[in-house]
């Protein structure tokens, strides 16, 4: 993989996308345009998956592209991987409906 570190898309974002397989404990260089910040990964995070740039409380918005991509379904620590286990989408939730057609 010729990519490295992680990439942020908007300065509002509280996650970044890892561009390489990250090992637990690794210091990850997170780029936003020309700016670089460093976040320590608390766990292994594979290429393409998200790393939290800040602590995110349960029920708070996870932000990418400067927009909400869903709510934290459990407390997230800076450096955690963010994916379906701790991030929940709120659209098309027929499972939460009562009186659905079948």
């Amino acid at each position: 993989m010729p990519f490295s570190g992680a990439i942020m898309i908007s300065d509002k974002d509280n996650i970044a996308v890892c561009l390489e397989d990250i090992e637990a404990g690794a210091d990850v260089e997170v780029r936003l345009g020309g700016e670089v910040r460093v976040v320590t990964a608390l766990e292994e995070i594979p290429f393409g998956f998200k790393i939290a740039l800040a602590d995110i409380a349960k029920g708070d918005h996870v932000l990418k592209y400067g927009e909400s991509i869903g709510l934290a379904s459990s407390p997230i620590k800076r450096g955690d991987m963010v994916h379906v286990h701790n991030l929940e989408g709120g659209k098309g939730r027929g499972d939460l409906e009562t009186g659905a057609s079948r």
Partner: peptide, 26 residues
Amino acid sequence: VKSTGEDLRTINPTEGNKAGGLSTIE
């Protein structure tokens, strides 16, 4: 989607999208 009683999270994003790092339809 709601009228079907199904959870969009199990349909779209697809399993492939999720394996590629995408977590939610948003």
